[in-house]
């Protein structure tokens, strides 16, 4: 019969029990998981069972982690996106969430750009920790991404994005994500990037403040290489703050639009 040990296929000649398998393959494992559930007692294994043997506190190597990710993602997806490069302009509420989603799914290279520092109020929706207050956002995010998936190459630039440096920063990416806060900066980035002699798509966001219904946030094609996420109208302002749930919804619309573009699918 065939079973899977830590996502790798393994053929057993005879019937085998879980503890026997542990003793053969990873005697120091102290967490045993069978088909997604922790196994409290020994049990006979069946054909097709997926066994995960873990030593608590032990980190897999980058190669082991990659093998686990390949097995977990749809076949073919990992190979395509591993060689992709995505640019993220701004790593606040949108950008920090987008970067984490793309690192978890295994995008090979991220270029993250932001001039800002982590402030206490950012913790209401941005993917930073209380001990990172005062650090440059790009440095804090790089550290967080490394803790999630050290196999992702993260290039950081702590600069303000302008029409002049746009091409140098993002000229080589496969997809660019606009993840700014201010409306005029969003328009500046889209206007200038769309006028560069490139075919690179850009995924922008407009309208995700407050606690309006989740389903009012949509992804749509807005131009030949322009994809727009958001409800289009709900601006951040007094009485309508930016909050984790809805900003997260928009961020993950953007991240999924990026993933679909990298896989050759249309985002809407």
């Amino acid at each position: 019969m065939q079973i899977y040990i830590n996502e790798q296929p393994h053929t057993c000649e005879a019937a085998i029990h879980l503890h026997e398998l542990r003793d053969q393959h990873k005697p120091d494992a102290d967490v045993l998981i069978v088909n997604g559930f922790p196994a409290a007692t020994d049990q006979e294994l069946k054909d097709g069972d997926r066994v995960t043997l873990i030593r608590r506190g032990e980190q897999p190597t980058a190669q082991e982690l990659e093998a686990l990710m390949i097995a977990r993602h749809t076949p073919g997806v990992h190979a395509k996106i591993k060689h992709s490069c995505v640019g993220i302009a701004g790593v606040g509420g949108l950008g920090s969430n987008i970067a984490i989603a793309l690192a978890r799914v295994g995008v090979g290279r991220l270029i993250i750009v932001d001039f800002d520092l982590v402030e206490p109020s950012n913790l209401n929706r941005q993917q930073y920790f209380i001990d990172q207050i005062g650090l440059p956002k790009v440095e804090a995010l790089r550290d967080n991404l490394r803790r999630i998936n050290p196999g992702v190459a993260v290039e950081i630039h702590q600069v303000k994005i302008t029409p002049e440096n746009l091409s140098e920063l993002f000229g080589q990416v496969d997809v660019l994500v606009e993840a700014f806060d201010a409306a005029d900066q969003k328009a500046m980035l889209a206007n200038n990037f769309l006028r560069l002699p490139l075919s690179t798509p850009i995924v922008v966001a407009s309208g995700m403040a407050g606690f309006e219904p989740s389903n009012s946030i949509v992804t749509r094609v807005a131009g030949e290489r322009l994809y727009l996420v958001g409800d289009g109208v709900t601006a951040a302002g007094p009485g309508c703050g930016l909050m984790a749930p809805r900003v997260g919804i928009a961020a993950h619309h953007q991240a999924n639009a990026v993933l679909r573009l990298l896989l050759g699918e249309t985002p809407d």
């Binding site: 950008g95 969003k186 966001a205 407009s206 309208g207 601006a235 951040a236 930016l242």
Partner: peptide, 10 residues
């Protein structure tokens, strides 16, 4: 014309 208007927030 396609007119895409941005509002603040991110």
């Amino acid at each position: 014309l396609e007119l895409i208007q941005f509002v603040g927030g991110g």
